[in-house]
């Protein structure tokens, strides 16, 4: 009976292809390299809804270990790694679309997580056991108890708040919706005042003299970059023209020079000087997705997100702009945590 044969072939084909397998989620290439010397953590943001956020460790010789969190914990980190901070021998990784902050020890073993956040962006320690977490959609800053790893209070800011910095007992939080800085009392947990800034504030730094600097992009798609200088004591402000096109603002280790980048060039500007000067040019193929200055060495780290659908790269330059090394990391690297 040919009919019977067909049925058997079919059954065998089905049985053959249905061997039990554990690997049914997304899979990734594995690397295993020995590292030495000082290391830096690369924050690989990953694609939205791909769940491919990860950590890479890069040592001073340019050797890399990828999938550091996955390897240490046997589980993925989460979706959209927005930022990370080291505080008191713990790392705090903000997973935007997972709505949580993952807390690890210095060997990247997870020791806990802070959940119940809507769309968290940045993490700022404001005391030994207290931190603020900003959010895109909740219109609030969450106040975290770092011992309990729970949200103990919220501060209503009524808008999308991004980066935060602490200066003279006040938190300065970048309000993206209203183009201002919200000044928050971290003890009273309330907004005490605000300072208007030009459109599209994208990064904030405080120099060695206590002056606040805000990089502004002009807003989504506007590309009208301005540097805004605020003297918090006198409330005097100044708008400066810049050649920046990437929105990032960094300081040198002495905190007396601002460092920023266009799509092909890195600039520095003494905080008390008059103008900017070019430090070096880099390959225009690099898509500047993160820009950091190592506060210990002054090395400049540019993280390149390539074309967003493949793994990125990190390019490291010394203060004079000589390329030290470049190395392949995870998806959409957006920042570096130095430790």
């Amino acid at each position: 009976m040919r009919a019977i044969n067909f049925i058997w072939i079919l059954i065998l084909a089905v049985a053959f292809s249905s061997c039990e397998k554990d690997n049914f989620g997304p899979q990734q290439e594995e690397t295993n390299t020995e590292l030495s010397g000082t290391k830096a953590i690369i924050l690989n943001e990953g694609n939205f809804n791909f769940g491919n956020a990860s950590l890479s460790l890069v040592d001073e010789n340019g050797e890399v270990q990828n999938q550091v969190f996955q390897n240490a914990n046997g589980a993925p980190l989460g979706d959209v790694l927005q930022s990370g901070v080291k505080h008191n021998d713990r790392f705090y990784f903000v997973l935007n679309n997972s709505g949580k902050v993952v807390v690890t020890d210095t060997s990247f073993q997870q020791v806990g997580e802070i959940t119940g956040l809507q769309s968290p962006r940045y993490f700022l320690p404001v005391g030994e056991s207290r931190a603020f977490v900003s959010d895109i959609y909740s219109d609030e800053i969450s106040v975290i108890d770092l011992n309990q790893l729970t949200v103990i209070s919220t501060i209503d800011v009524g808008a999308w708040v991004e980066q935060m910095t602490l200066l003279d007992g006040l938190v300065y939080a970048v309000n993206k919706d209203d183009n201002n800085l919200e000044l928050i009392d971290p003890e009273a947990l309330e907004v005490v005042s605000s300072i208007d800034v030009p459109a599209g504030p994208s990064d904030i730094e405080v120099d060695a003299f206590g002056t606040i600097w805000v990089m502004c992009t002009g807003g989504l798609g506007a590309n009208e970059f301005k540097l805004y200088k605020i003297d918090p004591a006198t409330e005097e402000t100044e708008i400066l023209e810049v050649s920046s096109t990437s929105g990032f603002l960094e300081l040198n280790p002495e905190k007396d020079e601002l460092i920023y980048a266009s799509e092909e060039e890195v600039f520095r500007r003494p905080v008390n000087g008059s103008g900017e000067e070019s430090v070096f040019n880099f390959d225009t193929e690099i898509l500047v997705y993160g820009f950091e200055v190592d506060p210990a060495t002054g090395n400049i780290w540019i993280t390149d997100a390539a074309d967003y659908v493949e793994q990125g790269e990190v390019f490291v330059f010394d203060e004079a702009g000589n390329e030290k090394f470049s190395v392949g990391v995870g998806y959409l690297p957006n920042g570096v945590v130095f430790w």
Partner: peptide
């Protein structure tokens, strides 16, 4: 009636560094 569908491995990153395994 029996129906069987097999879909092979699909890359999910352009550089082929990650993928979804086959399913049936």
């Amino acid at each position: 009636r029996v129906q069987y569908a097999y879909n092979g491995k699909r890359y999910i990153a352009a550089d082929h560094s990650s993928w979804m395994p086959f399913f049936s």
